[in-house]
Every structure is written in C-alpha cells, then in structure tokens.
Amino acid sequence: MIQVEKLGKVYQLGRHELAALKDVSFEIERGEYVAIMGPSGSGKSTLMNLLGCLDLPTTGKYRLESIDVQTLDQNQLAEVRNKRIGFVFQNFNLLPRATALENIELPLLYGRVPNPQKIALQALEKVGLADRAKHRPNELSGGERQRAAIARALVNQPAIILADEPTGNLDSKTGEEIMDVFGRLNRDGTTLIVVTHDPIIAGHSRRILKMQDGRLVGENAPC
C-alpha cells in the first residue's frame, strides 16, 4: 500500500541546506497500525508531511496505492489528500465557525461527494458523537473535538489515516479514549500511522518505526 524508497527532503534555509530526511525506505501494508517515533528534530514531522502529500520529496520515491506521489502537481496532490488521506492533528484543527457536522462534511464537499450530510452523520456515529452534530468546536470538550477530527479524517474512506501527536493536547484518560477509537478503527480495517514521541501511545500500535537525525534507525514491535 505504501512504498517509500530512499526518500530524502532537503530544506533551503537561506544559503544553508538542511537535510531533514535522508534515505528513508520502508513499506506499510493495508490494515497496519504503525507508530513513527523519535525525538523532536528527528525528521518525523517531515516524513509525516511527505506521507500526507502536503509536500514533495527532494529525492526518492513514494508510492501510495500505486500512485507515484513525487510526480504529481499541486492539484493532484490536493485530490490525493482529499480522497486517500485523513489527517488527525495534535490541536484538532477544526474550523471554529462551523459545526461539528459541517466540519466533517467539508472533505466531502471538496471531493464533490453526493449526500454529504448523510455520510458525515454516519462518520459522527462511528466516533460516538452523533448527538454533538450541531455543536461548534468551542462547545465540545477536547476529547470530543479530537473525535470530530477523526470523523473528518475517515469520512472520505481514505487509504490511510495520519495522526500527528493525536493525544498531545489531551489528558491521559481522554488520550486513552482516543487511542481506543484508533484501535477500533484499525480492527475494522483502517490503515493507521501515528507520529508520536510518547512510548505509551506508540505502544498501542503493532509496529514502531524509530527516527533519528532524519534517518530510520530501527524498527521493532512494541514491547
């Protein structure tokens, strides 16, 4: 499903070049639950951005469901993000003026999917938030916001869900609830990639990729 081959990313900072990612190669199969771990500055955010098609690699290849991502233009990238990738962010990133339901409809609207409201409601039910459909983000608790964000991520039935420190802004109990939601989604067949520096969160996954200094330094099953 995901094939990453000698992926590299160099940022131009003024006159200096910063190699944020060097020669990273791995594969992820459909239905896997993978954690990417590493200290800050290890390149895991860069890798996340590349996997999420928010950015293009400087070198190497990235295949997502038989698409050669590095060959795409901006419009095609937007379409891949819309149809095949769901993002879950540390700070939820819901639109503050829209209701939960409207937030979840948004990817469907950009994807021109018919009956967006009905599908969005189903996604809300999946994360147990159907009764909060008409609430705005500031009327929801942190855990509810993150669940709404998860509903938005999965509403277009993406190939993968990318979660960047999804419990970083939550207390540990709520964080556990979110991880339970992830676990359930994974058991239902969703491919999950979670970026975190928290070993407990990474512990929920079934495979851990360890990053350091822009390189993949190890891979192991959680302890």
């Binding site: 901006q74 419009n75 937007a78 379409e79 993002f87 639109l95 950009y110 994807g111 938005r152």
Partner: peptide, 13 residues
Amino acid sequence: REIGIRKAIGAKR
C-alpha cells in the same frame, strides 16, 4: 490556519 486546514483536507488552489 483555516486555509491550511482546508488545503490539508483537499481544497485546491
């Protein structure tokens, strides 16, 4: 930020 969110979930330019 709103623009970033929209782009992340698939809004085209």
